[in-house]
Amino acid sequence: MRIEITPDVKVTLRRSLRAAGRREIGGVLMGEQIEPGHFRVVDMSVDNETGGRAHFVRSPEAHADALDAFFRRTENEYERFNYLGEWHSHPRFPVTPSVQDAASMVDLVHGERGIDFAVLLIVRLDWWRWIASSCTLFHRGHQPSVVEILEG
């Protein structure tokens, strides 16, 4: 799988990461399917409230409005535009999923919500400008796998 992150989303990420400083933040990723296995992150939500120095857990209710607005803007064209996954920052740690991160994502795709797959994007701002990142695919019935991040 491959994902692109649009320049607008990168600007939002940088601003949010700068504002959060050393506190973890995160949200949901909303994407556009370009072709099978190739997605573009076109929007995201940001939860600036619930993160701590070494922990972030997103409240699903807090991002429902962002998802609803996204679906309205994309005229409920779910085959092309849909929920893509989750993101959060690791300002003090490597940009790889922790054991807790992976367990949360496995629970998400093996849960009752009917989500077959989701990506987890982990980011950190280096030198107040560059976004260091990793992206992992969690797919029902499969082992987690690395997602290629393309320059968008």
Rank of each mutant, 00 (worst) to 15 (best):
L125I: 03
V95W: 02
V109L: 02
G114A: 12
R40P: 00
A103P: 08
D116K: 14
L121I: 05
V57I: 09
D43F: 13
R15N: 14
R92I: 13
E35S: 03
R140M: 04
V146I: 11
P94K: 02
L121S: 05
F56I: 00
R58Y: 02
T6D: 02
D101K: 12
R18C: 10
L120V: 05
E35H: 00
E151M: 03
F39V: 01
R22Q: 13
A103Y: 10
R23W: 09
L84K: 04
G114Y: 08
S104P: 06
S145Q: 05
R80G: 09
T50I: 04
Q143C: 15
G26F: 12
G152C: 04
H139M: 13
V46P: 07
P91I: 14
R92A: 13
A103C: 09
F56Q: 00
H142A: 14
P36K: 05
A54N: 06
A20C: 11
A54M: 01
V99A: 12
A102Q: 11
R14Q: 11
R113I: 12
R40Q: 05
H139L: 12
Q143E: 15
D68H: 11
C135M: 01
A132F: 03
H55N: 06
S134F: 04
D101L: 12
I5E: 02
G21P: 00
I5G: 02
Q33C: 15
E148T: 12
V9G: 04
G111P: 06
R72I: 12
R58N: 10
R72A: 09
I115Q: 14
S16M: 13
I25W: 00
D116Y: 13
V42N: 07
Q143T: 15
R72T: 11
H139Y: 14
E61I: 12
E86V: 09
E79A: 11
E35I: 01
S59W: 01
